[in-house]
Design a binder for these strands. Structure first.
Length: 359
DNA sequence: AATTCGGGGGT
DNA sequence: ACCCCAGAATT
């Protein structure tokens, strides 16, 4: 018979062993220095689909630049994106600032401590909501991320596909039945820490596991079979041309990407899908789209950049801007030092490095 | 329910 | 290559 929750574990003893291990073995992380809900919030957004080691330097810089809700609410989006440059999933940064503005305006700059108010904030989903409520406000709410699903799929022997959206609810139901009211923060963080350090995706360190005696998968010797997760499909490859152009004063031509979609509002060197333009027609394409008279100088090193769902293969050309008047709305000519103010995706940072080297 | 959003590191 | 990562928004 199938049940909503399958509590084949002693909740009290499991929690006690988990929390005891966490308190003794937790890593010292910058967002664990205090319980400032704003800092917890920023860290949770940065940590979405992103490893701790990657986040740490970004977190330090971000908090130094935007120490409080009011600072972030008052900042230019451009500055926020620049602080996020290279971290990826840039809508996180834009949604975070949007939500912070909402908190500044509607909640007197205090991060909400209730489910409904938190959920209404942009970029705050079920996981982040639970993380803020449990870690910043000590409320016994589940915070189910990939770590938690991996750990609990093994502890409770749950074989549902964790790639499915609805599976998260199964784990939330189970966590609700186990999470202790007196220390939900260490419980939730303990599950994640355990997933990161011991109960790893491959070759979990079961011999070092503080909750080994509670683990169904270990008892059955099936820890390597869990969790069950269907495979993602292959990325689509898209070939592009990109152009590094400077005028007679050494100013560089860049353009801002659209406000929606991939790398929204970031800046880039002019780029066009190969499918849309033949390189023989580059000069007339620039005349038509930018109002500029250009000449292709030579080809630089191509860039290959892999995203979650697609791959850019970019042929890069050095061009000279000989004249004309810039007509493209979202394009600007900037000096090399000024270029540092503009947030570029990593793919175009690579192109920028090539250009700086050759200058 | 499936797809779209980045980028880095491990194996 | 393929996998994963303190997921959320959109379609």
């Amino acid at each position: 018979m199938k049940r909503e929750t399958q509590i084949n574990v002693n909740a009290e003893k499991f929690s006690a062993d988990l929390i005891d291990w966490f308190e003794k073995n937790k890593r010292e992380l910058p967002w664990r220095e205090n319980k400032d809900p704003y800092k917890i919030w920023v860290s949770e957004i940065m940590l979405q689909q992103t490893k701790v080691d990657t986040v740490i330097p970004y977190f330090h810089h971000f908090i130094e630049k935007f120490p409080t809700i009011k600072d972030l609410a008052a900042a230019d989006e451009q500055e926020v994106l620049k602080a996020w440059e290279g971290l990826g999933y840039y809508s996180r940064a834009r949604n975070l600032q949007s939500a912070v503005k909402e908190v500044a305006l509607e909640y007197n700059s205090k991060v909400p401590d209730h489910v409904d108010a938190l959920s209404s904030l942009k970029g705050v989903g079920p996981y982040t909501r639970g993380a803020i409520l449990s870690i910043a406000y000590d409320k016994p709410e589940p915070a189910v991320d990939g770590n938690v699903m991996r750990v609990m799929s093994r502890v409770l022997n749950i074989a549902e596909d964790i790639a499915k959206q609805r599976t998260r609810k199964v784990f939330e139901d189970n966590i609700r039945a186990i999470i202790p009211a007196d220390n939900p923060s260490s419980f939730n963080q303990g599950l994640m820490e355990l997933g990161a350090l011991i109960c790893t995706p491959k070759a979990p360190a079961c011999m070092l596991c503080p909750v080994q005696k509670h683990c169904q998968a270990f008892a059955l010797g099936i820890q390597d079979e869990l969790p069950v997760k269907t495979k993602a499909k292959k990325q689509k490859r898209i070939p592009y041309f990109a152009f590094v152009g400077t005028d007679d004063k050494g100013a560089v031509l860049i353009e801002q990407r659209p406000a929606d979609g991939l790398l929204a509002n970031l800046w880039q060197f002019p780029m066009v899908a190969k499918q849309q333009m033949d390189i023989e027609h580059a000069a007339s394409w620039f005349r038509a789209n930018y109002g500029l008279h250009v000449k292709v100088v030579r080809e630089l090193s191509p860039i290959k950049h892999v995203f979650s769902h697609l791959v850019w293969q970019v042929e890069v050309y050095r061009i000279a801007i000989l004249g004309g008047e810039l007509t493209a709305q979202d394009a600007v000519l900037v000096s090399i030092p000024e270029l540092d103010q503009y947030p570029l995706p990593v793919s175009h940072q690579k192109i920028k490095e090539q250009m700086i080297c050759l200058t």
